[in-house]
Nucleic acid binder design. Structure first.
Lengths: 237, 237
DNA sequence: TAGTGGTCTAGACCACGGT
DNA sequence: CCGTGGTCTAGACCACTAG
């Protein structure tokens, strides 16, 4: 089959949301509306809605409608608790290295014969602060050149994932992490304003995306004393 | 409505799996079989199957059937990488405190007006080792007395979650975590065979279960030098 | 009361896996 | 070929929300 009908509806709604034609908190077209718009049955429309719910885009309200949700925070472990609450007002991002093409691979893989073919990576590095207190160093590798449009670019609202979603229609669908408590070396300690040897949380992340050929690798170093890392995981919805 | 029909089917299949009447790798009754068995349509049966897939119990194979899957590891962050690979052979669990009823509450909650009414908790404490090297201290609180059958009991295969599932039909459906890198205090350091002040990973966990009134709280202290904590999160299935 | 989402029926046709 | 799961139609009735 070409493409499932329900996926057409998913695509339509995803774009509505990404392009903010329906903003956070606003209601999507009703299920019956979508039925007639796409000449499909409610079963099919509901399937599309379920998909979007799983992806965290929407929430349903019995008797009222389906509303665009605040985009899922802390997919995997990328939300430093406090970042989300501060919602930008007290958050600063310092670019330590703008996206560049480098001839090397990510410094780690995740077991299972994870081999990376491309000799090239897009690389960038950022320092995240809250109230001007540095809380996280973030190093990112994107193997291959498929996203070379990122090079030297600025991100939408300073968000890498938002940029991926809006400009490249790439969604993060999952991630794997390895976490360690470590003593900060001198470089890390300096950037995070810590004493040498202070405990920092080191997280290695591999993100999977809606494009099976594109993965993203990150190394995070977090000062968790004032802003611990938060994560949540729910199986349904 | 009393209980949805699809939930009846979910319950039926869940018990089949939990009581190992269908073992890991074996096939469940076909969808059409279940239709006639419960006098429902395939839509309803498929909905039940989808639910079980989301919960990680089964995998579907087009043209063949639906098979019982190895139970999901590392829900949330509870799998110390290496524990799962070792699959019991090199893993030891030392009971520091058998389940007892104590008159106190968990030492933390998770923001949002999380209030715990009951003045009582079931509490237990364990030390996890790999190759006789201590890697994790685990303190657990279960508020209320609904699971008083746990008191002084031993766990199925040494697994708390397996015991909850098999003996109480309670499934873990989600969890929230707060993670910090900390310096080990003397008590923690002694138990983990570390020097005072070594970095340890401190994780506070709140588990949600299929019973909305039952939550489980845990405090974990991990030595991540040899056995980092692993986690993975995939949105679909 | 009208409109929304939640559950369900009774079919249909297709794609895939094994015989 | 048959049985399996994957997609879809065209309805029905119910429960919830709001004017």
């Amino acid at each position: 089959m070409a493409e499932s009908k329900y996926l057409v509806v998913v695509q339509f709604l995803r774009e509505l949301i990404q392009k903010e034609e329906v903003k956070v908190g606003e209601y999507l077209p009703s299920e019956n509306d979508l039925c007639s718009r796409f000449s499909v049955t409610r079963t099919t429309v509901r399937r599309a809605m379920d998909q979007l719910m799983k992806e965290g885009f929407i929430e349903k309200q019995h008797g009222r409608g389906s509303r665009v949700r605040e985009r899922r925070k802390s997919l995997g472990l990328l939300t430093v608790k406090g970042f989300s609450e501060a919602v930008g007002s007290n958050v600063q991002t310092e670019i330590l290295q703008k996206p560049v093409l480098i001839q090397s691979k990510p410094p780690f893989t995740f077991l299972k014969g994870d081999t990376i073919e491309s000799e090239f990576c897009i690389y960038f590095e950022r320092l995240r602060k809250v109230n001007d207190i540095p809380v996280m160093i973030e190093k990112n590798w994107v193997p291959g050149v498929s996203l070379s449009g990122l090079i030297d670019s600025e991100f939408v609202d300073g968000s890498f994932f938002k940029t991926l979603s809006r400009d490249f229609q790439i969604e993060i669908i999952g991630s794997e992490h390895i976490l360690r408590a470590e003593s900060a070396n001198s470089k890390i300690a300096a950037l995070l304003n810590l004493q040498n040897g202070s405990p920092v949380l080191h997280i290695s992340v591999k993100f999977s995306t809606s494009n099976p050929d594109i993965h993203i690798f990150s190394e995070l170093y977090c000062n968790t004393t004032q802003f611990p890392v938060g994560n949540s995981y729910y199986m349904n919805q």
